[in-house]
Amino acid sequence: MEFLTNSYVIELAWIVAKIMVVVGPLLIAVAYLTLAERRVIGFMQLRKGPNVVGPFGLFQPFADALKLMVKETILPAGANKVVFMLAPMLTFILALVAWAVIPFGEGLVIADINVGILYLFAISSLGVYGVIMAGWASNSKYAFLGALRSAAQMVSYEVSMGLVIINVLVCVGSLNLTAIVEAQRGMWFALPLLPMFLVFFISTLAETNRAPFDLPEGESELVAGYFVEYSSMSFALFFLGEYANMILMSGMTTVLFLGGWLPPFDIWPLNVVPGPIWFILKVMLLLFVFLWVRATTPRYRYDQLMRLGWKVFLPFSLIYVVLTSGFLLWTGNLPTVAG
């Protein structure tokens, strides 16, 4: 019995329980995001989308999951087997571990670390490895070209994302995500930093390889890009990872610009709604915009994509850092650094 009352064991069990509470609903959210995508785009294109399996097509994701699981996992003969299998796992793991620092409500966070935003930034910058390893290990020119495109694209947009984050940090004076949300009690950063909010959102589209920046997949020229050789569960892991990343990026945007779990106005009917509900609603709104953008915009050409990242977003967000910090210094509103 002494083993069970050991404080390490109890703490470990508690952490595992918290992780389960986050990861379980996350996977269900991923499943329903795929359904939402097909339904929303269907309606936007005057189609119905999947509506046959279960009421309103609600069981469609489970049917898809079952189909993927019973299919054969194919290892291409020329592939580098170890790296080939490692790549989808890495993508999926990275999409999950970042959730450790996202605050869902006041104190509702697995790890409330000091450098939360840096951790998020670090994990999201690793996503490129899954793609590049998959492309290389597949030993296929389509997959490799897709991976090269993706690597260049993700590295490019990370730079402007970093500068946008600096804008927010200058306003907050802390790297802690809970502190960032608390700093938005008076006004969400989406209003004073509106241009940065837009730049950040567009960069998250590029970072998650979503339309209109889905060149790594570019089915018209690269079949499916870096995961063209994958099948069955290894494909499903890429798929899950991509959608979990979309939700993660929406969560990150919510925390940085839309006030996390805070209600839009601190007045009676709104502030009795629990924080996590607000957080989820805001994430859902951003995810809808993800789908909306996919249904309505044509794909960028690759040189235009690079031009947008390096020649438009990077100088713009760099100048905005100077403007924001200059403005705060001039008005004497620079945050006093806590801790």
Binding site: L118, F121, A122, S125, L126, V128, E158
Partner: peptide, 8 residues
């Protein structure tokens, strides 16, 4: 270290 060395 992770952002600069591993990520870039």
């Amino acid at each position: 270290l992770v952002v600069v060395y591993v990520g870039a």
